[in-house]
Design a protein around this nucleic acid. Structure first.
Lengths: 357, 357
DNA sequence: GTTGGCACTCCAGCACCGGGACTGCCAGCC
DNA sequence: GGCTGGCAGTCCCGGTGCTGGAGTGCCAAC
């Protein structure tokens, strides 16, 4: 019997082939099918022996006694980390990504929607884009506009052109000139910092202001405080293609459907879990058994972060069953990460042909 | 045999009772069940005779020979129009609506979300709110802000405090003063009109400007044109509670689930159909067989329009199976229509106790 | 017009069976 | 020692047949 880390070459080859076949067919893989599908110089009986070892080591399971084997998450983990090699993204896919993102123009919301739709289409799973977390993104400017008596629209422009606006109510009246000067003052003060930092400084400033009794500054700070209140609590996520999962045999019973859709209904929880992976640069594969994404341990994700310039911004990726074509899907996710970063960076024209890798 | 419009009293009573029982149980209703459930002075056999007549007249159907009867859409139509009487909304429901909407504050987006969630919760179906159609809503003001070199944020404030913003790209540079004067000029010009009208006038103005060569005005108009471009094409809809439909026995097979979710995935088509009912003031019940809402003729809707002041604004309602408690659900939908209108009208405190009816 | 009775129909659930798809193990062979 | 063919054993799956129950439709009697 082999221990997890010391699988011999032959076992690895078999495991790899089992994954390939299973991803393809969706059904348990039998020794005979393996024998026929590829030219190992081994009889089905010998393959059975190896499969028995792989089962003991935790890489395979049997749905029932007289069935073939299916790979475990542990097997996928090994496959992803050591066995597989990414394929190149087909040229027409690149072109589709480029043209779809280009047609979204410069409106960030439309860009995110287009990206999640592309992810969904290209993977056949659920595509998602998490917009830059409002709390950790860099503020570029803050503006205030009167929209009605007692109602002021606070517009916060964040780093990659993400605009967040909310209406706040004030009992006090502000003149346009006053609003303009407040806008300029707050922008000058806070430009280039994250909301997180700003919030702290704002509180400190308000405490100090109480002491100095600078009325004008006080009103400015109060406005700023209201504008930021609750900001970042509702992160923006774009999901697309939940219906795709209905076609996956692993989710096509009613109970699974309920759980899967429940997952997407309460986006908040899902988001929390995904956000953990925001720090890690590069692409991660999150398998359900390793870190339950949801109530359903069979859900897994491929995700990567995107961002403009130095600052990490948000994440995107796909969610679906662990049984997926990793060599094809991972490069697609990475492609979209780069493409979206480029767009946000306004470097649209650069390295369109062949990203270094 | 009775024709549709001349059902005698007894037939109506029976039909009403059949609907009541079927809405309650979800299963076909048998003559015996009717005999036991209510004190008609009739034997099961007599009830059977009447049910046979109702079947001939198109009000009932049998799933199969030896099953009870279920009401047709035609029966629901009669029930809604003539047989039922709305129940009063329970006091605690009123309070929940008030407090939930109040806690959404004055941010219109949050208000819509809260309303659709309430509709979903209170009906056990899918709640929806269609935001005021951007094309037919009245514009209050237009503002422009520079967010980055070559990128300008156009903020359009519509009548019930609905803010629509989009980033537009310009090759030309604009100074803050120039933007401010453009904002004021366009606002003065267009305030109080609908986008629809504005678009027309804008095109006329641009043609004229070509003649007079007023450069400054030309730039203003160009900005205005870009700001409006594509506006209104993407109406905002808020759906909530699609999962509720999974609990309905009529939608709990896989094929139905697929169709239902497909319906909500392509919101656009659904919206088109719903929008037809926007003109009609008051509350409508749209039954699937009368006007297919979707690919699934079993989906139906209860909807009403809401609006601030004189202008109709948007719609809200619920979507679910025709088998629903109309006497309870219709008043809930109407309550939310009024409540939302009131909020948008800033008449929050008015007639909280008992709306006239 | 109403009613009890009765024959008839259809469905839902259950048990049963046989074929097919695999595996695990064993004994023999290189 | 590793590989192999053979064989018994296990389990699933689809089809079939049966039975009880729930309802209806009709008829004859009141």
């Amino acid at each position: 019997m082999t221990t997890p880390n010391t699988l011999d070459i032959r076992s690895r080859t078999i495991l790899k082939e089992i994954i390939r076949v299973h991803v393809d067919t969706g059904k348990p893989v039998s020794s005979r099918a393996l024998f026929k599908s590829s030219r190992f110089d081994l009889s089905p009986a010998s393959i059975r022996n190896i499969m028995a070892d792989l089962t003991d080591a935790g890489f395979l399971v049997q749905p029932h006694t007289s069935a073939g084997r299916i790979p475990t998450d542990q097997a996928y983990r090994l496959y992803i980390d050591e066995l597989m090699r990414n394929r190149r993204v087909a040229e027409d896919v690149r072109e589709q990504v480029d043209s779809d993102l280009a047609s979204a123009g410069s409106d960030v919301t439309r860009l995110f929607k287009a990206a999640s739709r592309l992810l969904s289409q290209l993977s056949g799973e659920v595509g998602f884009v998490v917009a830059p977390d409002a709390l950790h993104t860099v503020v570029r400017s803050v503006r205030f506009l009167t929209v009605a008596p007692g109602k002021i629209l606070a517009v916060q422009v964040n780093e990659p052109d993400v605009v967040v606006s909310r209406v706040i109510e004030t009992s006090a009246e502000y003149s346009p000139e006053e609003l303009e000067s407040v806008s300029q003052r707050l922008t000058r003060e806070f430009c280039g910092h994250t909301l997180h930092e700003i919030r702290k400084r704002l509180l400190a400033a308000m405490a100090e202001e109480k002491a100095t009794c600078d009325r004008m500054l006080g009103r400015a700070l109060s406005l700023g405080d209201q504008a930021l209140e609750g900001a970042g609590s509702e992160s923006l996520v774009y999901f697309e293609g939940a219906l795709n999962l209905l076609d996956k045999p692993e989710f096509s019973d009613l109970e699974s459907v309920r759980r899967v859709f429940l997952t997407f209904e309460e986006k908040a929880r899902l988001l929390d879990l995904l956000t953990k992976y925001l720090d890690s640069k590069g692409t991660s594969v999150v398998l359900g058994s390793e870190n339950a994404l949801t109530t359903d341990p069979r859900l897994s994700a491929v995700l990567t972060s995107y961002g403009s310039g130095e600052t990490l911004a948000g994440m995107l990726g796909v969610i679906g069953p662990a049984r997926r074509e990793y060599p094809r899907v991972i490069p697609v996710v990475e492609l979209l990460g780069r493409a979206l970063s480029d767009r946000l960076d306004r470097r649209e024209a650069r390295d369109r042909e062949e990203p270094s890798e």
